[in-house]
Nucleic acid binder design. Sequence first.
DNA 1: ATCAAGAGTGACTAGACAGTCAATTAAAAT
DNA 2: ATTTTAATTGACTGTCTAGTCACTCTTGAT
Lengths: 188, 188
Amino acid sequence: MAKPRSEEKRSAIMAAAVRVIAAQGLGAPTATIAQEAGVANGSLFTYFETKADLFNQLYLELKSELASVSLKGLPVTADLRKQMLHAWSRSMDWAVSNPGKRRALAQLGVSDEITPASREAGHKTMTGIAALLERSRAKGPMRQVPMGFIVAIMNAMGDATMDFMIHDPTHAKKHCKAGFDALWRMLA
Amino acid sequence: MAKPRSEEKRSAIMAAAVRVIAAQGLGAPTATIAQEAGVANGSLFTYFETKADLFNQLYLELKSELASVSLKGLPVTADLRKQMLHAWSRSMDWAVSNPGKRRALAQLGVSDEITPASREAGHKTMTGIAALLERSRAKGPMRQVPMGFIVAIMNAMGDATMDFMIHDPTHAKKHCKAGFDALWRMLA
DNA sequence: ATCAAGAGTGACTAGACAGTCAATTAAAAT
DNA sequence: ATTTTAATTGACTGTCTAGTCACTCTTGAT
C-alpha cells in the first residue's frame, strides 16, 4: 500500500559502510557512507535508525557471512583434523579475498557501539564451528579448560593469522598452515 | 627562567586519561580528562600538543610499563620455560591488577590515532621478551615461522587470556596457567 | 484515475568538542 | 625587588556531524 523499501539500497549502504569503515574507521561520517552508497544522507536513516544501528547490523552480517563461509563444503565424513583445517582455511581465504570486510569486522568487534545482544547473536552464528572445536579438544590437553576461553584463543589466533596473511600475501598459504598447525598442536 | 612544567600534572593527566578511556573509550572529550585530572582544559594542551599526541604518549607509557613489569625479577639462571612462565605470569598479573590500564592499552592498540612511529617504539620496548620468545621457539616446531608472526600470536593469546582472567577472576590463576601451557605447547 | 502510505531528498539544526587566546599568576634569574 | 618567561585558566570559536523535517516522488490498492 506504499512504496516498499529497496533491498538493493539497504545492501548498497551496507557495502558502502564496509568500504568507508575500512578506509576511515568508525569515525567516518554517515554522510560519507550515504554518498558512497549513492543515496541521500537522510535515506540512510530510513534503513537504519541510528549510526549505531547500522554498525550493529553490519557486524552481524559480516560475522554470519564469515561463519557460513567457513562451514561451506565441510567434508563431514573426513577425520576431525581435516574438518577443522577446512573451516580454518575457508575463514582465512575469506579474510584474504575480502580485506575490507575483514578490516571493518575487526573494527566493529572492538567498538563499544556493538551491544551485548549483538555480540551474543554473533556468537550464535558460530555454533557450528564451536561444535567442531568442542569435539577437537575433547580428548586433548585442553579438555578441562572452559570452552569460552578456547573460543577466544582460537579467534585471537585466527585474527593474528589473518593480519599476517594480508600483510604478507606472498606467503599467505604458508602462514595459514602455520597458524592452523599451531592451533592444532595447542588443543589436540 | 620561568615556571617549569609540573611532572605531577603531566602524570595526573595521564592517569586521568587511563580512567576516562577505560570508562568511556577513546571518544571521551579532552575536557573530561582535564577535569578528572584536576586541571583546566586549556592546560592539557600545554602538556600535550593534541589529543592524538596524548594518546600516543600514553600508549608508549603503558606498553613500556607492561614490558618492564614482565621482565622484573626474571630468574635468568633458570631454564627457558621457567623464564617464559615468569614473564607471562607477570604480564597477566599486571593486567588483572590494572584493569583500567589494560582496557586503555587495548583500545589504544587498535586506534588509528596511534602512529606507525609509536607502534615501532612500542615494539622496541618488548625486545627483551622477544628475545626470550626467540630462544624458546628456536628448536621447536615454529623455528621456520617468521618471528613477527609468533609475536603476533603470543600477543593475541595474551590478550585473550587477560580478557578471560579479568572476566572470570575467581579462576584467574588457572586461566593464566592454561594460557601459558597452550602457548608453550604451540612453540616448544 | 485517485488516494493513502511511506520512501526519497537535502538543507537545516542542535549539540558537541578540539584547540585558541587574552588575561592572570607563579616561578626563576639577575 | 624587579623583570622575564612561561604556566595556568576558562570562556570562547570554528568546525563537524548525527539526526530531523518539510516537501516531493513512487508505489500499490481501490
